[in-house]
Structures are given as structure tokens and as C-alpha cells.
Design a protein around this nucleic acid. Structure first.
Lengths: 222, 222
DNA sequence: ACCTGAACACCGTTCAAGT
DNA sequence: ACCTGAACACCGTTCAAGT
């Protein structure tokens, strides 16, 4: 028999417990299962404490998204050029985002903190590969935006089933721009990332190499 | 006094009227104002007819999105290379998307038909500039995905105000990947499109020029 | 101070009942 | 056949009231 010397613990709802429960419901029932009432019920509490601990529903969703995005870790293989690292990071990050339930609803307001955290390993890799800070930040930002946008679009486009219309005699001669298969989508993403990295490489190569690692305050004429 | 010989017209709710009203509410009150009950009330009807005319709420939203996206017309200047046309199309299409109310909620399930319609002028321009059908479709598809994804991300990122945290001593040395200004966002989009068009140009130039305009059925060994 | 039951003001959706 | 009042089963949010 263990004696408890501490005063009988009052069960208080902690902020993190609310977010934990919301995430559990998200995985079990999807976005529509995440309800202030449902979270409160599972915690054995009335909905009121949620409003004092995490704020209203949009704040809860934001906290859930921030937590899930913040947990994403992209481990880069140490070797390779910065272009290879960048491409690898983007593909891995896409896979991680695609693993989130109802991701297109979660990614609508991604938090800046989570993005900073997710891109941190890439940023380090880029810098030790020789990019200066501004260049590295630019690469990270572009890859993040591309990947996030792509995942949202492809997650929304995943409802093309059961929509088989009879051939339309008025259809344009240009052919259909839809009806993409999964492998076509993967190719599209790979090409988009490749093109972006190529473009960024040209930018880096054509910038004054070796100088400007720190913004130098030269003589100005103002 | 006009005599009406036709039998007294019964006011029937047409599908298009429902969508019209939903769009009006969307512009007046935003996405949250578009409600089955509100649409029905404005039409002077009970909600029931909506379900028989357009289906449930998600079908209504889909119809609204399809209509608004379908109304987007991107007129291209006749001149220029196909690369210039492509870039111009992307920038104009982005502007059109950004003009939609609550666009990040509307673009989640964009319909294939609307995309085909929106890209039709570009597709024609690309073809008369010499691209074959497959190439033109690829260009259209990539530009559409990039632009749609970008607009969703930038619309969601437009909530960075009022989030000014005190400088965090634990913040990474890599610098912040957030806190983007509008002109930085515009530059990011321009660069992304430029890089994509550049990459597509390399693909087109390195493909066997002049042949394969139509898929030729050669002898196969199957 | 913190939590609760209960309520307010909505939702989407569907029922039996009318005409 | 088509529309209605009314209801069902939920929401997010907040109130006065308890301890």
C-alpha cells in the first residue's frame, strides 16, 4: 500500500491533454470527429475548461496542426550536394504531410514555428554545403511552399472517383487536363521540385560567389 | 394590362437559382454565411427543395466552386513565345483566384471541368506555338497545380498578424523562415513559375523535335 | 477560482403530413 | 409530385449557479 503524502491530486485538465485528445479523435474519426464537446466528453469534463485552456475551436485546430507539423522530423542523409539534400527533403516532407489525417483541412493555417522547426535540418545542411543564410532561407521557403501547396491540391483532387461523365461531343479539341493517375501526380511533384532546385541552383551560381556571406555595410551614397 | 394566357406560373426553384443565391451569400458574408437554411430562406423556400435540386451541402459548395472557377477567363495577348504566354497565364490566373472570397475553402475540391475550361486558351496558345498535345497538357497541368497550391498557401498564411512573440533565446541560428512580406510572396510566386517554365522549356527542347506530334503506332514486340 | 447543468442560437438533414 | 412545419441529432459558445 503506497501512502500518498501529497494532498489528494485534483484532476485538472492541462492544455496538452486537450490537444492530445483532439489528435486522438482526429486519427480515429477524422476532422469532423474533432469537436469541442467530444474532446471535453472524452476528458470527462464540461466544454468550459477547453475555452480557458486553449481558446475557441479554431485555436484548438491551430494547436493540433502546430503539434502535428512540429513533430515531423526529416532526417537527411549527410552526404550529397545541397541540391540533392533539398530534393530529398522535399520528397520526405511530402510523405510526412500525406500521412496526416485530413491534411488538406489541417494545412490551411500552418504555423510559422512549425515550418521553422521542420526546415531546420535542411537549413543546417544547406549552410554547411556553402549556401549563405539568405540563400538557404530562400531555398527552404520555396520548397516548403511548393510541397505544402502540392499536398493540399493532391489531397483535394483525391475525389475524382465516381465522376465518369459520358463523352461530351462539345469537349475541346485540346484534350483533358484531368484524370491524372497517382504515378502522374508523383511525377508532377518530382518535376516541380527538380525545376525549382534547378532554378535556385542557377541563382546561387550566378550570385557573387564567396562574398556577401554576411551583409557588408559598404560606403553608400545616400 | 397584359393578359397572361399561360397558366399561372408556379414559382419553382431552379438549380441555378440555388447556386446564384449561394454565391451571393458567399460574397456578402463569406463562407460561413453559405448555409442550406440561409439559401433556402433567401429563396423563400424550405430547405427541402435544395436537397432535390443540388444535393447536400458539399454538393452545393462544389457547384459554387465549379461555377466561380468556370467563370474565370484568362485572355492571353496573342504574341510572345509559349514561355511568355505560360508565365502571363499563371500570373493572371493567380490574380483571378485571389479575387474569390474565402478562396482557400473553395479551392479544396476544384473540379476538373473548371480547370479544363480555365486552361483552354492557354492550351490553344501553346499548341499554335508549336507544342504537341502532350507537351501542352503537361504545361497546363503543372501551371495549374502550382498556381492553385500557391494561392491556397498564401491565403492561409494571411493570418500572421497579431502573432508577435518576444525574441526567443532558443531560436535556431538559421534565422526565421517566416515573416514574409507581400512583395516577398509575389517574388516567390514569380520565381516558382519562372523556374517551372524554364524546366518545361528544357524538356520541350530536348524532346525529339518535330516528330511524335501524334502518337504513332509503330511495330511492337508484344 | 474553477467547474457544472442548462440554455442560447445556430447547423445539416429528414420525417410525416399536407396540397 | 412537390412543398411544408416540425422535428432529430447535432454543433460552438456562454450563462447563472454551485463548491
Amino acid at each position: 500500500m503506497t501512502t500518498r503524502q501529497q494532498p489528494a491530486m485534483r484532476v485538472v485538465v492541462h492544455r496538452d491533454a486537450v490537444i492530445d485528445t483532439a489528435i486522438a479523435l482526429l486519427y480515429e474519426q477524422g476532422f469532423k470527429g474533432v469537436t469541442m464537446r467530444a474532446v471535453a466528453y472524452r476528458l470527462g469534463v464540461s466544454p468550459i475548461p477547453l475555452y480557458s485552456k486553449v481558446g475557441d475551436k479554431s485555436a484548438l485546430i491551430e494547436a493540433v496542426a502546430e503539434r502535428l507539423l512540429g513533430e515531423i522530423e526529416v532526417n537527411l542523409g549527410a552526404g550529397g550536394t545541397w541540391m540533392e539534400q533539398a530534393e530529398q527533403w522535399a520528397h520526405t516532407y511530402r510523405d510526412r504531410l500525406k500521412a496526416l489525417p485530413d491534411r488538406h483541412l489541417l494545412l490551411n493555417n500552418q504555423s510559422r514555428d512549425a515550418l521553422v522547426r521542420a526546415t531546420r535540418p535542411l537549413l543546417g545542411g544547406l549552410r554547411s554545403a556553402g549556401l549563405d543564410r539568405e540563400q538557404a532561407v530562400r531555398v527552404c521557403r520555396m520548397l516548403t511552399w511548393i510541397t505544402t501547396g502540392f499536398v493540399i491540391v493532391e489531397s483535394g483532387a483525391a475525389k475524382l472517383e465516381a465522376h465518369f461523365e459520358p463523352a461530351d461531343p462539345l469537349s475541346p479539341a485540346g484534350g483533358r487536363a484531368d484524370g491524372v493517375t497517382q504515378s502522374e501526380i508523383d511525377d508532377l511533384f518530382a518535376a516541380q521540385i527538380r525545376f525549382a532546385v534547378d532554378g535556385l541552383r542557377h541563382e546561387v551560381e550566378s550570385s557573387p560567389a564567396g562574398i556577401g556571406l554576411e551583409p557588408q555595410e559598404g560606403p553608400t551614397f545616400s
